[in-house]
Design a protein around this nucleic acid. Structure first.
Length: 453
RNA sequence: UCCAGAGUAGCUCAAUGGUAGAGCAGCCGGCUGUUAACCGGCGGGUUAGAGGUUCGAGCCCUCUCUCUGGAGCCA
């Protein structure tokens, strides 16, 4: 029976006949015996095994180099030396798979750039093991958060023919050869099809039936964005609530971010310690701060006024009516408020058609949650539930209602106020771990010009 | 896509226009209940690619590629 190292290290008493399997992190030879550090990814820490040169299988010690896979059976005993509580006194060692001397992961620090070039091996490093354990736990926490609130998980389609909000370039999906625009009606789906950029419109239809729903799945943007926080393929979380207004939407967004921060503090403590030590010294205080303090909420117009009065010169000047630049967003959250900030009621002209028009006729019920270090992490809105106004909005944005006939239908049959938001899972992970590049919180990053692995 | 920077040994980096080097890793040996172990020795290079200037280019110029940071777009 194999014991995960995580469980072996959590022992409360010595134990005999324990078998662990994993990968050698390092071997240190002493007179007549060797120290083997074994890691199986079940936790950050490795288990130190003491392998006497007389032990069965010790003749293979020479090949038990960094990266090799191994099975060690022995007795778990209290370690006489500092550095670890428990160690495994081996009675049997088995070399499972040798690692060539070209094994690129060394015992010493590597740059993130280099590790990206060996994305197939980087999960074996301390940092990436921690990142992907944390990613898994937070994915689970996302479901727990919504399920505990009676939200229904909806699998919205990945292939779609509707271009939601025109927000971003889409990847074309086709089985046609040659000129794919010549006869789109001859294509697999009988029309042009794309990879989804958002499940929101479909999620709205389910919210208008099951009340509270959420999606959590892959999303694709063919934008030529080359930044530390953009990927062509990423995972997005999109809750949608019927009978809900913008205030309720902001409440949910805030509760969600707080819950994820709390979950990280409580359930990813060991890995968080690594992030704190090697990635971002401020990450734990920041999470504690986020959990404890209410988010600031400020209307767009007021945010602009704050920026204008800041006395700061930004790379791009503050322009009322225009989108906030990332420099502006960072000032608000990092310097002015020093906390997450929800900016709401944006000018109609810079937001998509489905957002509900406010009574002033100038702004819409949009909201963005800005967090220190990342900028925008959530974008959401109350949706336009009034049929006439929705049609007017579409006209305003030069969209054809017939292309969205089913979406418009929701406003014909039992329309209700509803609201929701979208949140990039990787951006959330960046915020929670302090990791500064989106390519380092997703197993195999897809970015312009790069789809290795 | 725009702006800036970078590309030299497996990795991290040095090298005034004049013989390409170090640390780490690897290999060999030594020592030691070790902890990114330590000590000694050895091997390791089309200086991203192409072209140009020069007696001579890792270094200067041009183009291409890749990466990084910032911006736009956004999540």
């Amino acid at each position: 029976m194999r014991t995960l190292i995580k469980h072996a290290l959590a022992a409360t008493a010595p134990r005999e006949g324990v078998t662990v399997k994993g990968w050698v992190r390092t071997r240190r030879d002493a007179k007549g015996f060797s120290f083997l550090e074994i890691n199986d990814g079940s936790c950050l820490a490795s288990l130190q095994a003491i392998v006497d040169s007389a032990v069965t299988g010790a003749e293979h010690l020479h090949d038990l180099t960094t990266g090799a896979s191994v099975s060690v059976t022995g007795n778990l005993v209290a370690s006489p030396a500092a550095g670890q509580k428990w160690e495994l006194r081996a009675t049997q060692v088995e070399l499972i798979g040798k690692a060539d001397t070209s094994f690129p992961l060394q015992k010493k620090g590597h740059t993130l750039e280099f590790l990206r070039t060996i994305a197939h091996l980087r999960p074996r490093s301390n940092l990436f093991g921690a990142v992907f354990r944390t990613r898994s736990r937070l994915a689970h926490a996302v479901h727990q958060f919504f399920q505990a609130r009676d939200f229904v998980y909806v699998h919205t389609p990945i292939v779609t023919a509707s271009d939601c909000e025109g927000a971003g370039e889409m990847f074309r999906v086709t089985t046609l050869k040659g000129n794919i625009d010549e006869k789109p009606e001859a294509d697999f789906f009988g029309r042009r099809a794309y990879l989804t950029v958002s499940g929101q419109l479909e999620a709205e239809t389910f919210a208008c039936a099951l009340s509270n729903v959420y999606t959590f799945g892959p999303t694709f943007r063919a934008e030529n964005s080359n930044t530390a926080r953009h990927a062509a393929e990423f995972w997005m979380i999109e809750p949608e609530m019927a009978f809900c207004d913008l205030a309720g939407d902001m409440d949910l967004a805030e509760a969600f971010v707080k819950a994820m921060a709390r979950h990280t503090l409580e359930h990813c403590a060991e890995d968080l310690g690594l992030f704190e030590k090697f990635v971002d010294k401020g990450v734990r205080p920041r999470l504690e701060f986020v959990v404890e303090r209410p988010f600031q909420r400020v209307p767009y117009a007021e945010a602009v006024a704050i920026l204008q009065k800041s006395g700061k010169t930004f790379e791009f000047p503050v322009e009322p009516g225009a989108n906030l630049q990332s420099g502006h967003e960072r000032y608000l959250t990092e310097e002015h408020f020093k906390s997450p900030v929800t900016v709401f009621d944006y000018p109609r002209t810079i937001k998509p058609f489905y957002m509900r028009l406010n009574d002033d006729g100038q702004t819409v019920t949009a909201m963005d949650v800005l967090v220190p270090g990342i900028g925008e992490v959530i974008g959401g809105s109350q949706r336009e539930e009034r049929l006439d106004q929705l049609l007017e909005n579409m006209k305003f944005q030069q969209l054809k209602p017939e292309d969205y006939w089913w979406y418009v239908d929701l406003r014909r049959y039992g329309s209700v106020p509803h609201a929701g938001f979208g949140l990039g899972f990787e951006r959330l992970l960046m915020f929670l771990t302090g990791v500064g590049n989106i390519r380092d919180v997703i197993p195999f990053a897809r970015t312009p010009g790069s789809a290795d692995f």
